[in-house]
Protein backbone atom coordinates (compact mmCIF):
# COMPACT_ATOMS: atom_id res chain seq x y z
CA UNK A 1 0.00 0.00 0.00
CA UNK A 2 2.74 2.35 1.03
CA UNK A 3 4.77 1.37 -1.99
CA UNK A 4 1.87 2.14 -4.18
CA UNK A 5 1.47 5.54 -2.64
CA UNK A 6 5.11 6.34 -3.02
CA UNK A 7 5.08 5.31 -6.63
CA UNK A 8 2.00 7.33 -7.28
CA UNK A 9 3.54 10.25 -5.46
CA UNK A 10 6.64 10.05 -7.57
CA UNK A 11 4.71 9.73 -10.77
CA UNK A 12 2.66 12.77 -9.91
CA UNK A 13 5.78 14.63 -8.90
CA UNK A 14 7.74 13.78 -11.99
CA UNK A 15 4.78 14.54 -14.14
CA UNK A 16 4.29 17.89 -12.52
CA UNK A 17 7.92 18.79 -12.67
CA UNK A 18 8.32 17.70 -16.23
CA UNK A 19 5.34 19.83 -17.09
CA UNK A 20 6.50 22.83 -15.16
CA UNK A 21 10.22 22.78 -15.61
CA UNK A 22 11.17 20.36 -18.33
CA UNK A 23 14.80 21.50 -18.17
CA UNK A 24 15.39 20.96 -14.47
CA UNK A 25 17.66 18.09 -13.34
CA UNK A 26 16.12 15.36 -11.21
CA UNK A 27 18.95 15.22 -8.67
CA UNK A 28 17.78 18.04 -6.39
CA UNK A 29 14.16 17.55 -5.35
CA UNK A 30 11.64 20.28 -5.71
CA UNK A 31 8.66 20.40 -3.37
CA UNK A 32 5.54 22.48 -3.87
CA UNK A 33 3.36 22.91 -0.81
CA UNK A 34 -0.10 24.40 -1.06
CA UNK A 35 -0.79 26.69 1.85
CA UNK A 36 -4.50 27.38 1.96
CA UNK A 37 -6.04 29.87 4.39
CA UNK A 38 -9.77 30.20 5.02
CA UNK A 39 -10.03 33.25 2.84
CA UNK A 40 -8.04 35.98 1.20
CA UNK A 41 -9.92 38.70 3.03
CA UNK A 42 -8.34 38.33 6.44
CA UNK A 43 -5.05 40.16 6.90
CA UNK A 44 -3.67 37.75 9.52
CA UNK A 45 -3.38 35.15 6.79
CA UNK A 46 -1.07 37.49 4.93
CA UNK A 47 1.23 37.25 7.88
CA UNK A 48 1.06 33.47 7.82
CA UNK A 49 1.87 33.62 4.16
CA UNK A 50 5.03 35.61 4.73
CA UNK A 51 5.97 33.04 7.40
CA UNK A 52 5.45 30.28 4.89
CA UNK A 53 7.49 32.05 2.23
CA UNK A 54 10.23 32.73 4.79
CA UNK A 55 10.44 29.05 5.70
CA UNK A 56 10.45 28.04 2.03
CA UNK A 57 13.33 30.39 1.44
CA UNK A 58 15.24 29.08 4.43
CA UNK A 59 14.73 25.47 3.42
CA UNK A 60 15.78 26.15 -0.15
CA UNK A 61 18.91 27.84 1.13
CA UNK A 62 19.78 25.36 3.86
CA UNK A 63 19.03 22.05 2.10
CA UNK A 64 19.70 20.88 -1.43
CA UNK A 65 15.96 20.77 -2.07
CA UNK A 66 13.90 23.53 -3.52
CA UNK A 67 10.70 24.38 -1.65
CA UNK A 68 7.94 26.47 -3.10
CA UNK A 69 4.72 27.70 -1.56
CA UNK A 70 1.47 27.85 -3.49
CA UNK A 71 -0.80 30.39 -1.81
CA UNK A 72 -4.41 29.90 -2.91
CA UNK A 73 -7.82 30.46 -1.34
CA UNK A 74 -11.29 31.74 -1.99
CA UNK A 75 -11.94 35.43 -1.44
CA UNK A 76 -14.53 34.88 1.27
CA UNK A 77 -14.69 32.26 3.97
CA UNK A 78 -16.72 29.70 2.13
CA UNK A 79 -16.37 25.96 2.71
CA UNK A 80 -17.68 24.97 -0.72
CA UNK A 81 -15.27 27.31 -2.47
CA UNK A 82 -12.46 25.96 -0.36
CA UNK A 83 -13.30 22.40 -1.40
CA UNK A 84 -13.00 23.51 -4.99
CA UNK A 85 -9.65 25.15 -4.30
CA UNK A 86 -8.30 21.95 -2.76
CA UNK A 87 -9.57 19.88 -5.65
CA UNK A 88 -7.73 22.21 -7.96
CA UNK A 89 -4.43 21.78 -6.15
CA UNK A 90 -4.94 18.00 -6.05
CA UNK A 91 -5.33 17.89 -9.80
CA UNK A 92 -2.44 20.30 -10.16
CA UNK A 93 -0.42 17.78 -8.16
CA UNK A 94 1.30 19.43 -5.20
CA UNK A 95 3.50 17.62 -2.70
CA UNK A 96 1.73 18.62 0.45
CA UNK A 97 -1.18 20.71 1.64
CA UNK A 98 -1.60 22.82 4.74
CA UNK A 99 -5.12 24.11 5.16
CA UNK A 100 -7.15 26.16 7.59
CA UNK A 101 -10.61 24.64 7.34
CA UNK A 102 -13.71 26.76 6.93
CA UNK A 103 -15.85 23.87 8.08
CA UNK A 104 -14.65 20.64 9.73
CA UNK A 105 -17.17 18.31 8.08
CA UNK A 106 -17.41 19.95 4.69
CA UNK A 107 -13.66 19.66 4.20
CA UNK A 108 -13.33 16.06 5.40
CA UNK A 109 -13.97 14.30 2.10
CA UNK A 110 -11.71 16.45 0.00
CA UNK A 111 -8.87 16.11 2.52
CA UNK A 112 -9.24 12.35 2.40
CA UNK A 113 -9.28 12.51 -1.37
CA UNK A 114 -5.95 14.32 -1.32
CA UNK A 115 -4.48 11.70 1.03
CA UNK A 116 -5.68 8.98 -1.33
CA UNK A 117 -4.00 10.81 -4.16
CA UNK A 118 -0.81 10.54 -2.13
CA UNK A 119 -0.66 14.13 -1.02
CA UNK A 120 -0.10 14.50 2.75
CA UNK A 121 -2.39 17.05 4.35
CA UNK A 122 -2.15 18.87 7.65
CA UNK A 123 -4.49 21.42 9.10
CA UNK A 124 -3.57 24.60 10.88
CA UNK A 125 -5.56 27.28 12.71
CA UNK A 126 -8.85 25.48 12.11
CA UNK A 127 -9.11 21.69 12.13
CA UNK A 128 -11.08 18.93 10.47
CA UNK A 129 -10.62 16.27 13.17
CA UNK A 130 -12.56 13.50 11.41
CA UNK A 131 -10.41 13.63 8.32
CA UNK A 132 -7.19 11.72 7.70
CA UNK A 133 -4.91 14.81 7.99
CA UNK A 134 -1.69 13.85 9.71
CA UNK A 135 -1.78 16.59 12.32
CA UNK A 136 -3.43 19.80 13.37
CA UNK A 137 -1.23 22.74 14.21
CA UNK A 138 -3.24 25.11 16.29
CA UNK A 139 -4.11 26.78 19.43
CA UNK A 140 -6.89 25.83 21.71
CA UNK A 141 -9.33 28.71 21.49
CA UNK A 142 -10.74 27.59 24.78
CA UNK A 143 -7.33 27.94 26.45
CA UNK A 144 -6.95 31.32 24.75
CA UNK A 145 -10.19 32.47 26.33
CA UNK A 146 -8.98 31.28 29.70
CA UNK A 147 -5.72 33.16 29.24
CA UNK A 148 -7.72 36.29 28.43
CA UNK A 149 -9.69 35.83 31.65
CA UNK A 150 -6.41 35.59 33.60
CA UNK A 151 -5.14 38.77 31.99
CA UNK A 152 -8.35 40.62 32.84
CA UNK A 153 -8.35 39.46 36.45
CA UNK A 154 -4.73 40.54 36.83
CA UNK A 155 -5.56 43.97 35.40
CA UNK A 156 -8.98 44.61 36.89
CA UNK A 157 -9.02 42.62 40.10
CA UNK A 158 -11.42 39.96 41.22
CA UNK A 159 -14.63 41.94 41.06
CA UNK A 160 -16.38 44.12 38.55
CA UNK A 161 -18.80 44.35 35.65
CA UNK A 162 -17.60 42.91 32.38
CA UNK A 163 -18.90 43.01 28.81
CA UNK A 164 -18.02 40.74 25.92
CA UNK A 165 -17.83 41.75 22.24
CA UNK A 166 -18.00 38.95 19.70
CA UNK A 167 -18.12 38.89 15.91
CA UNK A 168 -20.64 36.65 14.23
CA UNK A 169 -22.64 34.79 16.87
CA UNK A 170 -22.12 31.07 16.51
CA UNK A 171 -18.65 31.15 14.93
CA UNK A 172 -17.00 28.11 16.52
CA UNK A 173 -13.61 29.62 17.41
CA UNK A 174 -15.23 32.72 18.92
CA UNK A 175 -17.66 30.65 20.95
CA UNK A 176 -14.77 28.55 22.27
CA UNK A 177 -12.91 31.67 23.37
CA UNK A 178 -16.00 32.95 25.16
CA UNK A 179 -16.49 29.58 26.84
CA UNK A 180 -12.85 29.60 28.01
CA UNK A 181 -13.22 33.16 29.22
CA UNK A 182 -16.37 32.43 31.19
CA UNK A 183 -14.80 29.35 32.76
CA UNK A 184 -11.76 31.46 33.60
CA UNK A 185 -13.78 33.94 35.62
CA UNK A 186 -16.22 31.53 37.19
CA UNK A 187 -14.20 31.18 40.37
CA UNK A 188 -14.74 34.87 41.00
CA UNK A 189 -18.43 35.42 41.75
CA UNK A 190 -17.91 39.16 42.00
CA UNK A 191 -17.06 39.34 38.33
CA UNK A 192 -20.30 39.70 36.46
CA UNK A 193 -20.77 39.52 32.70
CA UNK A 194 -23.39 42.23 32.15
CA UNK A 195 -23.82 41.83 28.43
CA UNK A 196 -22.54 40.10 25.30
CA UNK A 197 -22.80 42.03 22.06
CA UNK A 198 -22.05 41.07 18.48
CA UNK A 199 -20.74 43.17 15.59
CA UNK A 200 -20.91 40.77 12.62
CA UNK A 201 -17.14 41.13 12.07
CA UNK A 202 -17.82 44.71 11.03
CA UNK A 203 -15.66 47.60 12.23
CA UNK A 204 -18.45 50.15 12.00
CA UNK A 205 -20.92 48.02 13.95
CA UNK A 206 -18.18 47.12 16.45
CA UNK A 207 -17.54 50.79 17.21
CA UNK A 208 -21.25 51.38 17.46
CA UNK A 209 -22.09 48.59 19.90
CA UNK A 210 -19.08 49.26 22.14
CA UNK A 211 -20.21 52.86 22.53
CA UNK A 212 -23.79 51.78 23.14
CA UNK A 213 -22.70 49.39 25.85
CA UNK A 214 -20.64 52.17 27.43
CA UNK A 215 -23.73 54.34 27.25
CA UNK A 216 -25.90 51.73 28.93
CA UNK A 217 -23.26 50.69 31.49
CA UNK A 218 -21.20 53.71 32.44
CA UNK A 219 -19.67 51.84 35.40
CA UNK A 220 -18.26 49.00 33.35
CA UNK A 221 -14.95 47.66 34.63
CA UNK A 222 -13.84 45.26 31.98
CA UNK A 223 -14.16 44.39 28.31
CA UNK A 224 -13.24 41.22 26.53
CA UNK A 225 -12.99 41.79 22.77
CA UNK A 226 -13.06 38.32 21.28
CA UNK A 227 -11.64 39.84 18.11
CA UNK A 228 -10.05 43.18 17.34
CA UNK A 229 -12.79 44.64 15.12
CA UNK A 230 -13.48 48.06 16.71
CA UNK A 231 -9.80 48.56 17.44
CA UNK A 232 -9.15 48.99 13.72
CA UNK A 233 -10.99 52.30 13.85
CA UNK A 234 -9.05 55.48 14.37
CA UNK A 235 -8.74 56.94 17.87
CA UNK A 236 -11.61 59.25 18.58
CA UNK A 237 -14.14 56.82 17.16
CA UNK A 238 -15.11 55.46 20.58
CA UNK A 239 -14.95 58.47 22.88
CA UNK A 240 -16.71 56.87 25.84
CA UNK A 241 -14.58 53.74 25.74
CA UNK A 242 -11.41 55.77 25.29
CA UNK A 243 -12.23 58.10 28.18
CA UNK A 244 -12.95 55.24 30.55
CA UNK A 245 -9.82 53.37 29.45
CA UNK A 246 -7.66 56.44 29.89
CA UNK A 247 -9.19 57.11 33.33
CA UNK A 248 -8.10 53.64 34.32
CA UNK A 249 -11.56 52.57 35.48
CA UNK A 250 -11.98 50.26 32.48
CA UNK A 251 -9.63 47.42 31.53
CA UNK A 252 -9.82 45.80 28.12
CA UNK A 253 -8.38 42.49 26.99
CA UNK A 254 -8.48 41.65 23.30
CA UNK A 255 -7.67 38.75 21.08
CA UNK A 256 -4.96 39.00 18.42
CA UNK A 257 -1.68 40.91 18.48
CA UNK A 258 -1.78 43.15 15.45
CA UNK A 259 0.28 46.37 15.39
CA UNK A 260 -2.75 48.57 15.86
CA UNK A 261 -3.53 46.74 19.08
CA UNK A 262 0.07 46.86 20.24
CA UNK A 263 0.01 50.66 19.89
CA UNK A 264 -3.20 50.88 21.89
CA UNK A 265 -1.67 48.63 24.51
CA UNK A 266 1.43 50.76 24.67
CA UNK A 267 -0.68 53.88 25.06
CA UNK A 268 -2.59 52.34 27.94
CA UNK A 269 -5.97 51.68 26.29
CA UNK A 270 -5.59 47.94 26.39
CA UNK A 271 -4.34 45.86 29.31
CA UNK A 272 -3.48 42.62 27.61
CA UNK A 273 -3.59 40.71 24.35
CA UNK A 274 -3.87 37.05 23.54
CA UNK A 275 -2.68 36.18 20.08
CA UNK A 276 -2.17 33.25 17.87
CA UNK A 277 1.18 32.86 16.18
CA UNK A 278 -0.05 33.85 12.72
CA UNK A 279 3.40 33.91 11.33
CA UNK A 280 3.97 30.41 12.67
CA UNK A 281 0.89 29.20 10.85
CA UNK A 282 2.95 29.46 7.69
CA UNK A 283 6.46 29.12 9.04
CA UNK A 284 5.79 26.02 11.11
CA UNK A 285 3.39 24.39 8.67
CA UNK A 286 5.93 24.40 5.85
CA UNK A 287 8.60 22.99 8.18
CA UNK A 288 6.27 20.23 9.35
CA UNK A 289 5.19 19.32 5.81
CA UNK A 290 8.86 19.18 4.80
CA UNK A 291 9.83 17.05 7.78
CA UNK A 292 6.89 14.73 7.22
CA UNK A 293 7.76 14.05 3.61
CA UNK A 294 11.53 14.32 3.52
CA UNK A 295 12.54 13.31 7.03
CA UNK A 296 9.65 10.93 7.62
CA UNK A 297 8.87 12.68 10.88
CA UNK A 298 5.51 11.75 12.46
CA UNK A 299 3.31 13.95 14.62
CA UNK A 300 0.63 13.68 17.27
CA UNK A 301 -2.89 14.39 16.17
CA UNK A 302 -2.67 17.87 17.71
CA UNK A 303 0.43 20.03 17.64
CA UNK A 304 0.26 23.03 19.93
CA UNK A 305 1.27 26.15 18.11
CA UNK A 306 1.44 28.11 21.32
CA UNK A 307 0.00 31.51 22.12
CA UNK A 308 1.49 34.98 22.43
CA UNK A 309 0.48 36.75 25.63
CA UNK A 310 1.30 40.42 25.36
CA UNK A 311 1.20 43.00 28.16
CA UNK A 312 2.94 46.31 28.71
CA UNK A 313 6.00 44.34 29.85
CA UNK A 314 6.75 42.67 26.53
CA UNK A 315 4.90 44.81 24.05
CA UNK A 316 8.09 46.38 22.73
CA UNK A 317 9.51 43.02 21.74
CA UNK A 318 6.34 42.24 19.85
CA UNK A 319 6.38 45.60 18.11
CA UNK A 320 9.95 44.94 17.09
CA UNK A 321 9.03 41.54 15.71
CA UNK A 322 6.39 43.19 13.55
CA UNK A 323 8.72 45.87 12.36
CA UNK A 324 11.44 43.43 11.40
CA UNK A 325 8.97 40.80 10.24
CA UNK A 326 11.04 38.36 12.27
CA UNK A 327 8.92 36.29 14.58
CA UNK A 328 11.50 33.60 15.17
CA UNK A 329 12.73 34.97 18.49
CA UNK A 330 10.69 33.88 21.53
CA UNK A 331 8.69 36.61 23.26
CA UNK A 332 9.87 37.72 26.73
CA UNK A 333 7.50 36.71 29.57
CA UNK A 334 4.38 38.84 30.02
CA UNK A 335 4.60 39.15 33.78
Amino acid sequence: MKMKKCVLCCVVLVFTLSLLFPAISVAANKYVFAWIPKALNNPVFELGRSGALQKAKELTEQTEDTVEVLYVASVNSDAAEQVRVIEDVISKGVDGIGVSCNDPTALKDVIDKAIEAGIPVMTWDSDSPESKRFTYLGVSNYEGGKAAADLLIKAMGTSGEVAILTGVPGAFNLEERIRGFKDGIQDYPDIKVVTTVACDDDINKGVQVVEEVMQANPDLNGWFFVGLWPLFAERGSMPLWEAAAKAGTLKTIAFDTLPVELELLKDGYLSGLVGQKYWGWGYDTIQMLYDYIVNNKRYESWTDSGMDIVTIKNVDAMIEAWETQDFTKPLPPAF
Binding site: D201, D202, N204, F232, E234, G236
Partner: peptide
Amino acid sequence: RLGVAAPTAAQ
Protein backbone atom coordinates in the same frame (compact mmCIF):
# COMPACT_ATOMS: atom_id res chain seq x y z
CA ARG B 1 -15.62 58.57 10.89
CA LEU B 2 -13.81 55.30 11.64
CA GLY B 3 -10.48 56.42 10.26
CA VAL B 4 -10.11 53.13 8.51
CA ALA B 5 -11.09 51.79 5.11
CA ALA B 6 -11.61 48.07 5.53
CA PRO B 7 -12.24 45.72 2.62
CA THR B 8 -14.83 44.01 4.80
CA ALA B 9 -16.64 47.27 5.52
CA ALA B 10 -20.34 47.63 4.84
CA GLN B 11 -20.77 43.96 4.08
